[in-house]
Amino acid sequence: MDRTIAIEVSRLTKTYDGGHVGVADLSFQVYEGEIFGLLGPNGAGKSTTLRTLITLLTPTSGSASILGYDTVRDADVVRQLIGYVPQERAIDRFLTGREHLELLGALYHLSKAEASKRIAELLKLVELEEAADRPAKTYSGGMKRKLDIACGLLPNPKILFLDEPTLGLDVQSRLRVWDYVRMLKGRGMTIVMTTNYLDEADQLCDRLAIIDGGKIKTLGSPAELKARLGGDIVSLTLKDQSKIPLLVSALTGQPAMRTVKTTPSGLDIRVDSPEKALSAILESANRLDCRLEFIEYHRPRLDDVFIAHTGRSMTESVQDIQTGS
C-alpha cells in the first residue's frame, strides 16, 4: 500500500557538546493520518528525535523533513505546519487560559477575528470554557494538560507532536486525553507522540518505534511487533524457589520450548504451541517434585516486546528515571 509520507527522518545523528550521543543514524517514516509512537527508556533518544522534528535541535548529520520541508533549512515553514504539546506543563501561571491562546494566536500571526473564533472552538473542544478567564495557577493538573493541548492545536496543525501527553495525570484525565488523540486522528491529523506507558502505546499508536541507546530497536504496529516476537509465554511461579535452576535445566532444550528464562519467583517460557508445551512442563515439574503456585499463560504483550528489545522492563527504566541514574 502506498501511503503519503508526512515525516521523513533520514540517517539522523545528533551528538551533543561533550560527546554525548543523542541519536545515531536514525531513519524512519511517519505516514499521513497515523498515530506514531516513540517508545523507549529515558535518555534513549526519544526527546532528541522529537526536538529535532519540531525544529528545536539542529542535527549533527542526516536530516528530517516535515511534509517535504527540511527542519533546518525550511524551519519557518515547518513551524507553521506543526503543533507541539510539551512534556512539562509549559504554562504561565499568571495568564488565563484565554490569554495563553491569544498570545499564541499573535505568534502565529492570526488576525484578531480569526484568533478569537479559533480560540472559542478550542476552549469548547477541551471543555475549558468556564475556566478560560481564570489565571492558570488555579487550574488542576488535568486542566493544565487540556490547555496545553489547546495551545498545541491553535495553529490548526497538520502534524501534532505530543511529548509524554499523559505523564502524571489521573486515570480520568488520561482517558480524556486518549479520546482527544483519537478524535484528532479521526479528523485526519497526523500525530507523533512519545510515551513511557506501554498500554498507552498499545491503545493509541498505529505504529511505533522502540528506541534505545539512540537507535531504533524495532518498528511496526503493536500487533506486528507482538507477532514478530513469536510464541506465547507461560509464566510459572514456584512454591520452592530453590528448585528453579533444576526445572530450568530440565526444560531447556525440550522441543516444545523456544526459550526458558529465570525470573525472581519462577520461570518465563516462550513456547510455540501451548498445548504441547503445557503438558511437557507439567510432566517435568511433577517428576522433579516442583510444586507450582501459579501458572499464567499469555500472548506476547508490548511489555514483552519492550523487554526483548531493550533488555529491561519499562518499570525498571522508569525507576531509573526516578532515582536519577
Partner: peptide, 12 residues
C-alpha cells in the same frame, strides 16, 4: 518550565 520551548516552536 518549557514555556520558552513552546514559543520557539512558533514561526516567530
Amino acid at each position: 518550565n518549557g514555556f520558552l520551548e513552546r514559543l520557539m516552536t512558533t514561526p516567530i
